[in-house]
């Protein structure tokens, strides 16, 4: 082969060089209902001074997207809805953040169970997990878990709240109203290095803080009564909507 033949071969091979998007990893993921102060789940006092005791509480969540990079506040408003990436991690950036991994399914989580729900083995790429986006959608096809407990909504709970001797039994049942980014909790903060060496043991755990979901609810303002003479806590109450949509109601750790 003449020199220009070799030149063409080299140039050709150079052009075809494989471009990797990062070191691929697989890791175990889970979700659990918890308290923001680490105490046992089930009873707590909220910011409005109500002592809340829960008998049942179920939460429907997913998809979940794990990002390297933090979201920028002013960048969100007015931009087209990005939605969930639905692409192979490592090939997608959203708002200049790299998608490290995803959970594409919807899961039902028993918030009071006290043990983690296994989300299975997830594929992703190496990086530092810095922010998480959690979708809060009504039940769709293929929900994993006890769908019947959800009563067709995103958050369902039964319990009572007590303040100054007044006891109010309640039944929470709601889906976040549609519109803009309402059904997406963006910018849940995290600081978890995900390296091939590290992820061989342990798991990435999404924590849903039950006390913060109900932290702003003033049970004294509930007026409608529903099944079993319990006060209805639904999407008309800004306190519960604020709690569910707050990025501070969720956490992500490696354990």
């Amino acid at each position: 082969m003449r020199w220009y033949g070799w030149l063409c071969l080299v140039v050709g091979l150079w052009g075809c060089e494989a471009k990797t998007s990062g070191v691929k990893i697989q890791f175990q993921a889970s979700a659990v209902g918890a308290m923001s102060d680490g105490k046992p789940v089930g009873a707590f006092e909220n910011r409005q001074g109500w002592k809340v005791t829960l008998e049942k509480a179920h939460f429907l969540f997913g998809p979940v997207v794990f990002y390297e990079g933090k979201p920028r506040v002013a960048w969100w408003r007015g931009l087209p809805r990005w939605g969930v990436a639905y692409a192979d991690p490592g090939h997608v950036t959203v708002d200049n953040r790299k998608v490290l991994a995803e959970v594409r399914e919807q899961y039902v989580l028993d918030l009071l169970k006290g043990e983690a729900l296994d989300l299975g083995k997830r594929s992703g790429i190496e990086g530092t997990l810095e922010s998480v986006e959690l979708q809060l959608l009504p039940p769709a096809g293929g929900v994993i878990g006890a769908l019947a407990e959800m009563e067709g909504v995103t958050f369902s709970a039964i319990g009572q709240a007590e303040k100054a001797g007044e006891i109010r039994k309640f039944h929470a049942k709601l889906t976040i109203p549609e519109g803009g980014t309402q059904r997406s909790v963006q910018g849940i903060e995290a600081e978890v290095p995900l390296s091939a060496a590290k992820v061989t043991t342990g798991r990435l755990e999404v924590r849903i803080f039950v006390d913060r979901l109900l932290g702003s609810v003033d049970f004294g303002e509930l007026s409608e009564k529903g099944e079993g003479e319990r006060y209805a806590l639904n999407e008309k109450d800004g306190g519960i909507v604020q709690g569910i949509r707050s990025r501070y109601s969720y956490g992500v750790v490696w354990r």
Binding site: T181, V185, R212, S216, E221, G238, R245, R247
Partner: peptide, 24 residues
């Protein structure tokens, strides 16, 4: 008293999940 709409519904500001619980 509690701030209400003209139809009696309570008024809420939507912080888009951004404010910490101690800064609402």
């Amino acid at each position: 008293e509690r701030l209400k709409e003209t139809d009696g519904a309570l008024v809420y500001y939507d912080d888009n999940g951004l404010l910490p619980p101690d800064q609402l």
